[in-house]
Write a protein that binds this DNA or RNA. Structure first.
Lengths: 241, 241
DNA sequence: TAGTTCGCACCTAGGTGAAAACGT
DNA sequence: ACGTTTTCACCTAGGTGCGAACTA
């Protein structure tokens, strides 16, 4: 429990007004504090994200909570090295639709209006708050973030509706030490959304090509990889002799 | 990097003046701030610590860093639930002696004066700073703390001299939000030392009974346990038929 | 039927002491 | 001799998709 949690609901409200801007740039253009106005954010593993995005990324949600893969990771530049920042993520539903997967056409179809929205939460990066110098030193990874479909979750996981589409967002909040700093709250943050990180929440993979790409690229799924032809050839010949 | 790290060397100096008090009570009696004056700390797994202590606890130190076992864990009461605290540990050499183990008599013997003292460090609990309510909610565990004999360690591990005796200490620091709070530094903390957690730093276990107790009680050493007679009997009979 | 849950085999990642190799 | 370092088999702990069972 840190002081900045006081601002939880304040920032949550602020963020809710942001447009779902798909250009990966700062979502707002109003005057910003110098500590955040120059912040630049670059998505890591962008090529992998794009591979998934081309197939239509799916993310598993479970009752106990499931990690995202690919993991949301960013490189940050342009912070004030000596200022304190809080880094966090949230997820916004991209549209008010529910989807279903048509296996015969291997595509997603709209299937009516969205269910009641899941309780919206924010996920603070566990190193928050930390100085700009610390954040910029190396890649910032949200690998501990988990997705759940349990509306009553009390593990602090992100609650999403299965069969709905989401856009992850990333927020950089300057921890202003000034008294009554909440008055500057709308000047003290900047937000980023990378369109290639959009995904469909599912309880089981629908698109087989997504499953195969997960198996091929996630180290924890190595057990499901079929050995490549060269490996098969080597093993075959070495067991024969 | 948090603000309270500014006080690192200030508190390090303060702590260096504390006596090595073996009664597990607060080490100082001078007037304390209300946020720390009522703090009570109870050692977890005390029975296990005492078992080890009776044999003469040994802790492995390695170049890469080794965890302690038993882990230093405490339950805390009497904090101000809404005040912020920083929790940390350090290790003080119990005497200025170097030791060696006499296998024939299964006992430790003094073997001259202590080597040059290893660089003294403090280990902040990674959840610091946090509110009293958060710390008191559940056991506070220092399971990520590691011991090393590498004088040039740059992983933030605790540096100890092998074949020297140490007393772990636990410090509760009130994160005073007042300006110039360092002026109150000596009033804003309290310290605890549990004599049953004293140990000898070693690079390899000397006392075989310590080794056996580690194997019997540390889950990660289960691979070295000899199956107990009942299990042997059951397995024997179930494989025969 | 369409979607969710659960147990499972198979991984990654890393914490153990044993024992051999290495210093001094 | 005595103490340290390194490698290793064997664990714990927990992240994977699979497939059967379950639910409405």
């Amino acid at each position: 429990m840190h002081h900045y949690y006081y601002y939880y609901y304040y920032y949550k409200l602020l963020f809710s007004f942001l447009p779902c801007n798909p250009d990966g740039e700062s979502l707002t253009t109003c005057t910003k504090a110098s500590q955040v106005s120059g912040v630049r954010v670059q998505l890591e593993m962008q090529a992998l994200w794009q591979q998934f995005d081309q197939l239509g990324t799916e993310m598993i949600v479970t009752k106990a909570g499931r990690r995202m893969f690919p993991t949301f990771q960013v490189r940050i530049a342009g912070m004030d090295p000596s200022a304190d920042y809080v880094l966090l993520m949230d997820f916004i539903q991209i549209d008010d639709k529910r989807y279903r997967y048509a296996f015969h056409s291997s595509s997603w179809l709209m299937a009516g209006q969205a269910d009641v929205a899941a309780p919206s939460r924010m996920h603070f990066h566990p190193d928050s708050p930390a100085r700009g110098a610390q954040w910029m030193k190396q890649t910032v990874s949200f690998d501990t973030l988990k997705l759940t479909n349990n509306l009553l979750d009390d593990n602090g996981h992100m609650i999403l509706n299965s069969m709905h589409r989401y856009q992850p967002r990333f927020h950089v909040v300057y921890a202003d030490p000034a008294p009554n700093s909440y008055l500057n709250a709308n000047r003290n943050f900047c937000s980023f959304a990378f369109p290639e990180t959009q995904f469909m929440a599912v309880t089981a993979y629908q698109n087989h090509r997504i499953t195969q790409l997960k198996i091929a690229s996630n180290p924890f799924a190595k057990g499901f990889r079929t050995p490549d032809p060269l490996t098969v050839w080597v093993v075959w010949n070495s067991t024969v002799f």
